[in-house]
Computed example of a mutant assay.
Amino acid sequence: MSAAKRLLLVHAHPDDETINNGVTMAKYAASGAQVTLVTCTRGEEGEVLVTELANLASDKDDKLGEHREVELKDAMAQLGINDFRFLGAPNKKWRDSGMMGTTQNERGDVFWQADLDEASHELVKIILETKPQVLITYDEFGGYGHPDHIKAHRVAMRATELAAEQGWQISKIYWNTMPRSVIQMGIEKMKEVGSDFFGAESADDLPFAKPDELVTTVVNAPEYVPQKLEAMKAHATQISVDGPFFALSNNLGLSVWGDEYYTLVKGEKAAPFDSNGRELDIFAGVI
């Protein structure tokens, strides 16, 4: 028998899920919810931050995707997630698209070039199998404009329409949101210790900083921050323990990762709420 609460997350590359939703995933999985992660590419074009693994890069041995599959598996073990899949697997693989305007982005096998309905139908299969009540993905800008994030958004939203036509209606859809005030606080704290956060002077310099009023929902789960940080460490080629994410943890304390923010774009907000009127439970009103 399937779990009473079922959550589906659609992400572009391995590590996106942990940065955006690590405590959300860990919290709901620990409570008995079925959590399904769909990752659309293997992140083949990612930068390799581990010197001894530099040969994996796409301009060298081009084996980073295979390595990131292992990193994702290790990260999911930390978060307690058993159901994680790559879109189209095992028969279809879409490659990391790289950034807009690059030669990689023009390859015929990259996710950005994928036919929208073909990719969406692959996700529909998973939706009809797992029957999630709640979906989490990116906004229409993909958070910060990466082609694969934008395409993941489009595929997720299209798949929900197609699944509804085939009998499964997802009750609530959320987009990841990084509120400007939280990012600005982090930047100020980093400045106090003579460091920076991605070189930004202000949250306005970062494309993923969103107006606070877009936040409808916050998942507060500080007790799962240690698991989130261990999952981040598992993505070693992409997240450096000496980089801005862990510097933020050191300077703001672990609680900086305990809140994850969302914009509800389908469904109705429901109690309980925090003092700012934001939902505290993504399944509220569903079960």
Rank of each mutant, 00 (worst) to 15 (best):
T39Y: 07
V50I: 12
D59H: 15
N91I: 06
T41V: 10
T36H: 05
V35I: 11
S58W: 12
L79H: 03
L79K: 12
Q34A: 13
S31V: 01
L72W: 09
E47Q: 13
E71L: 08
G80T: 03
T36E: 07
L64R: 06
V38H: 05
W94Q: 07
D61R: 14
D61Y: 12
V35K: 09
G65P: 05
E44Q: 08
Q78L: 10
L87R: 03
A89V: 01
A33E: 03
V48K: 04
T41K: 06
T41Y: 03
D62T: 13
V38T: 02
K92A: 12
E69H: 06
Q34K: 13
V48D: 01
E44L: 02
E45P: 04
E44V: 09
V48R: 05
D59N: 15
L53S: 02
A75C: 04
G43Q: 07
R42K: 12
D62G: 05
P90A: 11
L64N: 09
L64E: 03
G88L: 05
S31A: 14
T41F: 11
A33L: 05
K60N: 14
F84V: 01
T36M: 13
K63E: 13
E69F: 01
V50Y: 03
M76D: 07
R42N: 01
A89T: 01
T39E: 05
G43S: 04
A75I: 07
A77D: 11
V70C: 10
L79N: 06
V35Y: 09
L87V: 07
V48Y: 00
K92R: 15
L37K: 12
T36L: 14
V35D: 09
I81T: 01
D74I: 04
A57S: 15
N55E: 15
G32I: 10
K92M: 13
D59G: 12
K92Q: 14
A54V: 09
T41D: 00
D74R: 12
F84N: 09
N82G: 15
E44H: 04
F84Q: 08
T36Q: 08
N55M: 13
G32Q: 07
L49I: 07
D62E: 13
T36D: 10
V48Q: 00
T36K: 08
T39S: 06
D62K: 12
G80E: 08
L53F: 14
A77C: 00
E71V: 03
L56D: 08
S58L: 11
T39V: 15
D59T: 15
L72G: 06
E45W: 00
A75Y: 08
R85P: 00
K73G: 06
L56A: 04
K60P: 06
K92G: 02
K73L: 01
F86D: 10
R85A: 01
